[in-house]
């Protein structure tokens, strides 16, 4: 078996396993897993920029909510059906990430983190400011009757699960393919040593901008899907916390690995699920996890697996 075969087996095996789990798991966990797959898509978007391109953004909640509100407002304010609304959500995320990328990429390092954080904060405040339409922190519900696409009711358990799986699979396989392509390998080169990549003749600025747009659009896709599948959009998703979550998931699962985001979300989701039944301060677990990760497993779960045993993992 060549490494290429192993990679395919890993990727398609993951998707097949997720499909199979629907028939095996109890209803409660099936519901969780649908949410996990949408959040994992968000993490995949984040990982593309952080894990593969080496840019640490603290403002991805802005891209997630651009998709979420793009779709949500298109449906509730303009009465569009779900399919065109989804496209509007994607366009919104794409445009927002292009503008933010264009501006923020003039900076690097700490300043890049802070600038992305500030733009996201401005986005959050903007959602609050236009509370008449967005209903601010409280958020708004998308009617069940409207959450239909191509005649399929997306609010039912089955269709929601498989819609989430399709979303996840598209983004998972797309990113897996990109990072194996010459373009993706150039991004990795930029992550490893930007000055060297530039002096090999690569336009690193243009590459990084493309990476932000791809990353932001995938994140927005996840945001739009979240609103569509769970029928809710709220300003909470625009807070700093939702920019830090994908960083946490990706670090936990393994930055710069294709399966890392999914692994990270599953772990963190159940860790918080278990601890929130004990205490309201469930983010304490996230904090402890982050410190432990930084100290003992900076490469995350999948990263450690790759380093120790499976060097072929993409």
């Amino acid at each position: 078996m060549t490494n290429q075969h192993r990679v395919h087996l890993l990727h398609f095996g993951t998707i097949a396993l997720l499909a199979l789990l629907f028939f095996v798991l109890p209803a409660y966990h099936v519901g969780n897993l649908a949410r996990i797959m949408v959040l994992a898509t968000y993490a995949i978007g984040y990982n593309f920029l952080f894990g593969y391109t080496g840019l640490l953004s603290l403002g991805h909640a802005l891209f997630f909510t651009a998709g979420m509100y793009g779709l949500g407002l298109a449906m509730t304010q303009f009465g569009l059906p779900s399919a065109p609304a989804l496209i509007i959500g994607l366009i919104a995320a794409c445009l927002v990430s292009a503008v933010i990328g264009f501006l923020a990429l003039r900076t690097s390092g700490v300043a890049f983190m802070i600038v992305t954080l500030m733009f996201a904060q401005a986005g959050y405040l903007t959602i609050l400011y236009f509370g008449t339409y967005t209903r601010g922190d409280e958020g708004f519900v998308i009617q069940q009757a409207k959450r239909v696409m191509f005649g399929i009711d997306l609010s039912s358990e089955v269709s929601r699960y498989f819609a989430a799986l399709i979303l996840f699979s598209i983004c998972f396989l797309t990113v897996a393919r990109i990072v194996q392509s010459p373009f993706g390998k150039t991004l990795i080169a930029i992550r490893e040593n930007e000055e060297r990549a530039r002096m090999l003749g690569y336009d690193t600025g243009a590459h990084k901008l493309k990476a932000i747009i791809i990353s932001g659009t995938i994140s927005g896709f996840a945001g739009a899907a979240y609103a569509l599948l769970f029928g809710y959009a709220g300003a909470t998703f625009a807070t700093v916390q939702y920019s830090i979550f994908p960083l946490l998931w990706v670090l936990l699962g393994g930055a710069g690995t294709t399966v890392g985001p999914l692994i990270g979300v599953i772990f963190m989701f159940y860790l918080i699920d278990l601890s929130s039944s004990i205490t309201s301060a469930y983010m304490l677990i996230a904090g402890v996890a982050l410190v432990l990760l930084a100290m003992f497993a900076p490469q995350g779960l999948a990263g450690t697996l790759r380093k120790r045993w499976f060097k072929w993992m993409p």
């Binding site: 640490l56 996230a286 904090g287 410190v291 930084a294 100290m295 900076p298």
Partner: peptide, 30 residues
């Protein structure tokens, strides 16, 4: 006990201090 152990590696320090943020904040909440 934390930052010196990770040698002030820039990325890991950011992660660790985000962790500290939540530990302090949530402990205060409790």
């Amino acid at each position: 006990f934390i930052l010196q152990r990770i040698n002030y590696d820039p990325d890991r320090t950011i992660v660790a201090t985000i962790g500290l943020l939540y530990i302090i904040q949530q402990t205060t909440l409790m």
